[in-house]
Simulated scan of single mutants.
Amino acid sequence: MAHADITNARFDRSDDHRGFFTRFFDGLIGIAEANHRVKRVQHLNALSDAELAKRGIRREDIARHVFGDILYI
């Protein structure tokens, strides 16, 4: 039978001063920001109005353009 000795184990608790929910929602935000659609919105927002016009997109329609197939916007 194997035994594990954890009496000298160190756990990283550098974020313990932050609340559970803060850390939880930071994780959810990280997941959302890694979404390819969010990256596409960020990319399109970085373009100038002239560049968007060449693509046939108005700045106020970026979210509709990117998320239109999954959300009714």
Rank of each mutant, 00 (worst) to 15 (best):
N8R: 06
R23V: 07
G30A: 02
E33T: 03
E33F: 11
T22K: 05
R55A: 13
H17V: 12
F24T: 15
N35E: 13
R23Q: 10
R18C: 11
G30W: 03
A34C: 00
E60G: 04
N8D: 13
G56V: 02
L52D: 01
R55G: 09
D16G: 09
S14K: 04
R64I: 00
R18D: 12
L47Y: 01
E51M: 00
G19A: 08
L28G: 12
Q42M: 10
V38A: 11
G68I: 02
D15P: 10
F20R: 07
I6C: 06
R10N: 09
R40F: 15
H43N: 15
V38P: 10
M1R: 01
V41F: 04
S14F: 03
R18M: 14
R59K: 02
F25D: 11
F25L: 10
I62C: 03
Q42S: 07
I29M: 10
R37S: 13
D15M: 15
G19F: 08
T7L: 14
L52N: 01
D61F: 07
G56T: 03
Y72G: 09
D15E: 15
L47G: 01
G68P: 02
G19I: 04
V38C: 09
F11Q: 08
D5T: 00
D69N: 04
A2T: 11
L71A: 08
F21Y: 11
Q42I: 07
T7C: 12
I73S: 06
E51K: 00
I70L: 07
R55N: 10
V41W: 03
R58T: 06
G68V: 01
G30I: 04
R40T: 15
